[in-house]
């Protein structure tokens, strides 16, 4: 079982537009229902654009603060996904682990946690690779410089 795709799959832009429209319509009328806001936020965090994901996170945080909300675990789960997609792994892990405190054996959340950790490691590896590449490049330049000076 893999959660990888949940962190990399994206929603269709036309879907996002539909839910954006719902949200804006309700906004114009003065009050956005939790359902509309949640749906819009779910699509936002699956957008390919970081700015959309960020906006989705803001909307989810707002939902979470609303009194008498029944969907808190859903909001937190999507907050974990949104943050992971923005590479805010530490924050994402905090949300996932918060969920696990309430539901320690929730397989879906355990998988998400595992995947965030994997992504973290992968990013660290990438950092090392970039550093390695930079050193190689630098070495070559120095070598070239030395060779030229000798000539």
């Amino acid at each position: 079982m893999e959660v990888a795709d949940l962190l990399s799959e994206t929603c269709a832009p036309e879907d996002l537009k539909v839910f954006e429209k719902h949200y804006n319509e309700e906004m114009c009328k003065g009050e956005v229902s939790s359902k509309t806001q949640f749906e819009y936020a779910c699509f936002l965090v699956r957008s390919k654009y970081p700015a959309d994901i960020q906006r989705g996170i803001v909307l989810l945080e707002e939902l979470y603060k609303r009194p008498d909300e029944g969907g808190n675990r859903d909001f937190i789960y999507y907050l974990a996904i949104g943050n992971a997609r923005l590479k805010e792994y530490e924050v994402a892990l905090k949300y996932a682990q918060g969920l696990l405190r309430v539901e320690p054996s929730n397989r879906q959340v355990l998988q998400l946690e595992k995947c965030i950790k994997k992504k973290m490691e992968k990013d660290a590896l990438k950092g090392a690779a970039i550093a390695g590449g930079a050193i190689l490049g630098l070495g070559a330049l120095v070598g070239l410089g030395v060779a030229l000076t000798r000539k």
């Binding site: 079982m1 893999e2 959660v3 990888a4 795709d5 949940l6 779910c42 675990r73 859903d74 789960y77 999507y78 539901e103 054996s105 929730n106 397989r107 879906q108 998988q111």
Partner: peptide
Amino acid sequence: FMADCPHTIGVEFGT
């Protein structure tokens, strides 16, 4: 078999 399975949030993925 998972005896105690919480409600899925959104979607889950398996291969």
